[in-house]
Design a protein around this nucleic acid. Structure first.
Lengths: 219, 219
DNA sequence: TAATAATTTTACTGATCGGTTTAGTAATTA
DNA sequence: TAATTACTAAACCGATCAGTAAAATTATTA
């Protein structure tokens, strides 16, 4: 049996508890609005212990935010035989991820502190949007090479797809935390976004739009 | 000659000075990160005077944010004979407004404090995006009635136009305060956004796209 | 000029902040 | 069991916070 010292297990568990507590408090109150006492209380840890694990408030904050970026990546990995179905699947997967309340809280926190912590804004941009965009570019380019899409600038095409599907509900959700879009509303945005995207970028829009109808089942 | 008492003039001037100072400090430091001393210092006003004008920090903040919404509205009032030219003019006008550093700082502030001050988020949504959207809907509907556009849902069409033109650069700018898009980059987004929009929504895309080329002067 | 209204200065409250110290207790290790 | 390590509770530090009180000073009015 592998011998992992109990000490280390406790330490890691406690560290995780602190990180979770700190993230939730930071997300709810902002950086300046969060007190280390509040974090210690929520983590069920004494304040000196908190300071032993993470030297300062700023260190704890940056560490937590830079660690969090790994949880928010998601690749464009929905393989299938049909492009429209793949796009539809990706759209829903991404919407479900991005529109979760905790995810929105985190985004508000990052945006709100972007001026005070530019490195965190950069890290988020690189690990979140940029990564998703890269995956989308790869996928869209492959579809273009397969003759199903047509465009000159793959980056613009990917950004268009994103903007068509999620910009409206996400921007609204950022301003209105207590008014999270229903799945029916998301479906409306996704269906419309895909429709416009295909109409503008598909080599055979008529066929793909028909396929979209059979998938979404709308009129 | 009209007799406006000097007292009131001074009062209004001082009030304006306080509001300007408070807005800049709040935008730079966030709500919790801003001290009333800092505002008083920047406004060149004593703290008791500050408190005499605005009872509490929270009152000052909400008052300032609810007042600010009037400056950020802009109507879709770019009349002309050519739809493509009008859309192009609107796109630039709106981009120039929305991508200004102070405007972005304000947006970051509102988003960052949306959970603590839901009313401010609501007011901003109603006075900013919703108002612009209403103007766009009116305009697009008129163009549809004139036979130049085709769509079922005017709201979705307006949101698509917005998302195609500004969602990518704006989202990026929200995360990266020190990396504001150049006018060339904005031109790229605007040209591409209008192109995709016309391709998906124009009744005669070929003609409108040609017109777009002559306006933007690109290849 | 005399009266008055507004503002400033200065100092102060009580609370909270980030961060530390101390003294003592519980858990792990050997 | 004994030594060690990690932890807790509590008080504490200096600084800063929102907000107030009082007295001195300035500007406006009549």
């Amino acid at each position: 049996m592998t011998a992992i010292p109990q000490r280390e297990l406790n330490r890691l568990a406690k560290q995780r508890r602190i990180l979770d507590a700190a993230l939730s408090v930071f997300a709810a109150e902002g950086y300046s609005g969060t007190s280390m006492d509040a974090i210690a209380l929520k983590a069920a840890v004494s304040k000196p212990t908190l300071y032993q694990y993470f030297g300062t408030k700023e260190q704890l904050f940056t560490e937590i935010m830079l660690a969090e970026r790994n949880t928010m990546l998601l690749a464009f990995d929905h393989p299938g035989t049909d492009m429209v179905a793949e796009l539809h699947s990706f759209a829903w997967h991404y919407a479900d991820t991005v529109m979760r309340p905790e995810f929105l809280s985190l985004a508000r926190l990052i945006i709100g502190e972007a001026q005070r912590f530019p490195e965190i804004g950069r890290a988020y941009q690189a690990a979140g949007p940029d990564r998703v965009l890269a995956g989308m570019i790869t996928y869209l380019t492959r579809q273009r090479d397969a003759g199903k899409l047509t465009f000159d600038d793959a980056e613009l095409a990917a950004e268009d797809l994103w903007g068509l599907i999620l910009s409206a509900p996400r921007n609204q959700a950022l301003h209105l935390p207590d008014r999270i879009p229903t799945r029916a509303e998301l479906a409306r945005y996704i269906h419309n976004g895909l429709r416009v995207f295909l109409k503008a970028y598909a080599t055979d829009p008529a066929r793909d739009l028909a396929q979209l109808q059979t998938i979404t089942g709308t009129k």
